[in-house]
Design a binder for these strands. Sequence first.
DNA 1: ATATACTCTACTAACATAATAGAGATTATC
DNA 2: GATAATCTCTATTATGTTAGTAGAGTATAT
Lengths: 146, 146
Amino acid sequence: MRITYKGDYALKTILDLAVHYGDTPATIHNLARRADIPVKFLEQILLDLKRAGFVQSRRGKVGGYLLARRPSEITLGEVVRFIDGPVEPIICVDKKYKGCNDMAGCVFRSIWHKISDSTSKIIDGITFEDLARRSRSLDPALTYQI
Amino acid sequence: MRITYKGDYALKTILDLAVHYGDTPATIHNLARRADIPVKFLEQILLDLKRAGFVQSRRGKVGGYLLARRPSEITLGEVVRFIDGPVEPIICVDKKYKGCNDMAGCVFRSIWHKISDSTSKIIDGITFEDLARRSRSLDPALTYQI
DNA sequence: ATATACTCTACTAACATAATAGAGATTATC
DNA sequence: GATAATCTCTATTATGTTAGTAGAGTATAT
């Protein structure tokens, strides 16, 4: 698994929305500014996240983005997989992968599987409620921020 | 961490050399054929592995490649890191990474660190002697193969 | 000598990443 | 109903990485 800029930006944005869950919608502009993300890039990312059901939007004045689900119901793993793909270190299961002509006899497969497993255990056990709580305790100012 | 074709090929090749450790040198041609790797691509990979001290070569007739160290002294992690780079899922420590303006307040960092740790524990605890043994037990024919 | 093998540098096609650009659609408010 | 603020959507582009390919050169056992 590799987290790209896009993934990094998506996670930071969802965390921002989780920290401010219950508030008025956050505009792309503000989300971009707070996390230092190029506005036009974040536009696209938010559209993706919206189509996937992570966030919802409101148009027009007083518009912006909100989480579509409660922070406690969005895991880190879900978002990572949606943006950056499977956690497997190598896609030798995939039909497209030409490098594996000997699935049964491959001693590496069980190792890659073990790595996927341990990674999944970590990212699937963390929700954005957890992350928002940690974030608030690192910087209590966030709790009152509009 | 993502294993590329290059990494996959390097691991398979070193495993092949480990399984046949003590034999006469294996030619690029044979190594490539046995693992279904493009010959010219494997040439480059083996030169890299040689420069890094994993393998040694002999030129001319009866030439080929041998492991430069005992299989028990080469870990999976060493080879993976050499070919495919660090195991960290995101290089937010790196100076080049522009996405992190808030190292101290980032709740994700400890998570990425945890993932690197668990991955490292797996790949650094496995040597090519282990892998060769597993490989032989999966396909006993390999033990006697020239 | 010669065949067999490794050595080295350069080049390239395809794809992924990280944006940027610009026109369009919706809505609160005056 | 005009306007400003905001989201929506498609296209384009620059850069880097990956996965090779090409070809000329060097060493050595026989």
